[in-house]
Computed example of a mutant assay.
Amino acid sequence: MASRKEALVRRANRVRRQIKAVANGRPRLSVHRTSKNIYAQIIDDVAGKTVAAASTLEADLKGGLKTGADVAAAAAVGKLVAERAAKAGVKEVVFDRGAFIYHGRIKALAEAAREGGLNF
Rank of each mutant, 00 (worst) to 15 (best):
M1F: 10
L80V: 03
V15L: 07
R14N: 08
R105N: 10
V77P: 00
Y102N: 09
P27T: 10
F100N: 11
E115R: 02
Y39T: 10
A76F: 01
A108Q: 11
I43A: 05
R4P: 04
S30T: 14
F100K: 04
A85T: 05
A99D: 07
V15M: 06
L29I: 10
R4H: 15
D70N: 15
F120D: 14
A52T: 07
V77M: 08
V31Y: 01
A52N: 02
A73T: 04
K62G: 08
R14V: 09
I19W: 00
K107Q: 09
G117A: 11
N13C: 12
V94W: 09
A75M: 05
I101H: 11
A21S: 13
R33D: 09
L80M: 11
A110C: 04
R28F: 08
G98D: 04
G25N: 07
A2Y: 08
A53H: 05
R97E: 04
A59E: 14
A7R: 15
E58T: 13
G89N: 00
V51D: 01
E6D: 15
R105W: 02
G78L: 06
H32P: 00
A69T: 03
Q41F: 06
R105M: 14
N24K: 14
E115I: 06
K36L: 12
A59S: 14
Y39G: 10
K107M: 07
G89K: 09
I38W: 07
A72W: 07
G117E: 11
I101P: 04
A23D: 04
A47S: 09
A73M: 04
A40P: 03
R4D: 11
V93N: 05
V9C: 04
A75Q: 11
